[in-house]
Amino acid sequence: MQAIATIGRFFLGFFSQTGLLTLFIVQAVKALVTPPVYQRLIGQQIMRIGYYSLPVVALTSFFTGGALAIQIYYGGNQFNSEAIVSSIVALGITRELGPVLGGLMVAGRVSAAIAAEIGTMRVTEQIDALTTLSTDPFKYLVAPRVIAATLCMPVLALVADIIGVMGGFVVGTQSFGFNAAIYVQQTVNFLQPDDVISGLIKAAVFGFIIAIMGCYHGYHSKGGAQGVGRATTNAVVASSILILAANYLMTSLLFSA
């Protein structure tokens, strides 16, 4: 009996969470497509979410591109040519590692920050104050963050692509003595626009997930500083897992055909 009750409680909790989240997303999307649009706030968020994430994403991508090149080179003697290393690095970075690792880094940085900020506003009644001042928190707080993150992530992923490929190039030419011109030539020849574009589409979805998760956990946080801490952790964990799950789903949709 005890076990059944526990399982029941788990599923009840799960479904009420899912319902709450669905409702939140519907409200957020509605706020995105109806006026007013707060351009000043969107601009602010683009700076905070996009611009300040550049160093993190660039560094992550550079080292990943480099490590990937090493793995492929030493993975087997038959692979250690400019052609193989450059093409696998380019493909791996643009299709998967650029957007996914970029997304995970931004999830850690941004969804935590969003959850902490909105969570603090919740527990200090600032969200109530917004409402009494005739301002919809979804339009004022959620929409600018969702718009900014969804717009910025593809740009960040593109930066990650370029710098990741550069990481592979640097390792290839410096450590393995590859010919620089041939390496670049191979990369350009091999890479298809679809490889890059699919990665950018994924990144936009990741951006949406990151902002929604941050806002959702912040918005529903309660119980003072501890509650805000919990919201922050949950936002990072949830957005990271959802990014990986969405990545799997989108990869199978985009590439199975």
């Binding site: 009644e125 600032q126 104050a129």
Partner: peptide, 13 residues
């Protein structure tokens, strides 16, 4: 309606 919250609830941003 105007409202003063017990702890102010000023927007700190």
């Amino acid at each position: 309606i105007g409202m003063l919250f017990q702890n102010g609830a000023l927007f700190d941003s």
